[in-house]
Simulated assay, not measured.
Amino acid sequence: MKITQIMLSKGFGGAERYFTDLSVALAERGHAVQVICHKRFQELKRLKAVPGIYTETLSVLGWWDPLAQYSIKQVVKKFSPDLIHAHLARAAYIAGKTARKFNIPLVVKTHNYVNLKYYQDVSFFIATTNDQRHYLLENDVSKDDIEVIPNFSLFPGVECIKAVNRNHIVFASYGRMVSKKGFEILLNAFQELISSGINARLMIGGDGPERKPLQRLCNRLGLDKQVTFQGWLKDVEGFLSDADIFVMPSLLEPFGIAILEAMSCGMPIITTKTKGPMEILDDNQAYFVEAGNVASLVAAMKYVVLNREEATVRAARGLDRYKNHYSGYVVIPRIEQAYRELCDVKS
């Protein structure tokens, strides 16, 4: 198939990771993939290096940008794809105009609870979770135009679970450094954990507008020797392999690709009771805490440190669930099938 993938943000969070991994996976499976992205998109170099991916870059001022709309129409017309798959509101809005003009099916991915005013002329919605599907139904999207297909990771999944280090526990967390990710809660919880006598370190990956305030908080808490900020991660698997326990402290989390990556590495997982993680995992596979509650997070971190055999069992169950439900080997064929069915309807 000839598939156009459009992502017009220039940062790199979960939606951008999904867009990049999907484009790469589709090209590796023999599809011709046109990638339309911002000229400063952080993963552009990776995309350009993949045979079968044809990149088109541009600057975009907003969903309303007439020059971007014109440019995208021109490059899509030249590529003549079987379908367009757009990611996030800006791309969805502009792709809708292009799809309507050339009568091309448009697939959109709901990476969050989207504002549907930007999602016009959409042929098919891929909802990330059942809760997002329910949201679309409540907003009058036909059930025939929605399928729940979760996010995925291209990580293969480890063969065996790594034993938790007995003497020096390393916690890991990463994501875009914005307030909703809950890193402030994590730092305060970690300080209380250290004060209780637990010998541990914390690695935090990612970047964003809250990084400097978080580093200042780390200093005020006296954690400069125990906490490292590692910036955007080029090697997530390597980062996770250096840690024992993964923590997702998000205040809001519609899915959480980082959860999948930790599952694939066979790590014990502590996560908040937010919508995405609660759909991915259950109490047999992870440890859940109240979002925004420092005491709840401290208690879970301490419990996992002191009950390592149980934590290893839960990690093994999480790894098994990842391989059966969230690996790219499982999810990508479902996306391809959705594409084929949509193109068959058009023809």
Rank of each mutant, 00 (worst) to 15 (best):
T312M: 13
N324K: 14
R314P: 07
R314S: 11
L319N: 00
R340Y: 06
S327W: 01
K323L: 15
Y326H: 04
E336P: 03
G328H: 06
C343E: 05
P333I: 09
R314M: 15
V345P: 00
A316S: 14
Y329R: 15
K323M: 13
R317L: 03
R334K: 15
Y326F: 14
A311T: 06
I332V: 15
N324I: 08
A338T: 13
H325D: 12
D320I: 06
Y322G: 07
A315C: 11
E336T: 10
G328T: 09
R314Y: 09
L342N: 06
G318Y: 02
N324G: 08
S327I: 04
Y322N: 08
I332A: 05
P333R: 10
L319Y: 01
R334W: 03
G328C: 12
C343T: 12
V331D: 01
V313S: 08
V331E: 00
K323D: 10
Y322R: 10
R334E: 13
R314Q: 14
E336F: 01
V345Y: 09
V345M: 09
N324L: 13
R334M: 14
Y322T: 07
P333D: 12
E336K: 09
G328S: 15
Y329V: 14
D344Q: 12
P333V: 08
I335G: 03
R314L: 14
L342M: 14
R317S: 12
K323P: 09
V330T: 11
A315D: 07
L319D: 01
H325K: 11
L319K: 04
V345R: 10
E341V: 02
S327K: 01
R340C: 05
R321P: 03
D344S: 10
E341D: 10
Y322W: 14
V313R: 08
Q337S: 08
S327L: 05
S327R: 00
G328N: 12
E336D: 14
Y322D: 06
E341A: 03
V313T: 12
N324Q: 14
Y339E: 03
D344N: 10
T312W: 01
A316L: 13
P333S: 12
Y326L: 03
R321M: 07
D320K: 10
V345K: 07
T312C: 11
Y339R: 03
E341F: 03
V313P: 00
R321A: 12
L319T: 02
V330I: 15
V330A: 07
L342R: 02
D320R: 08
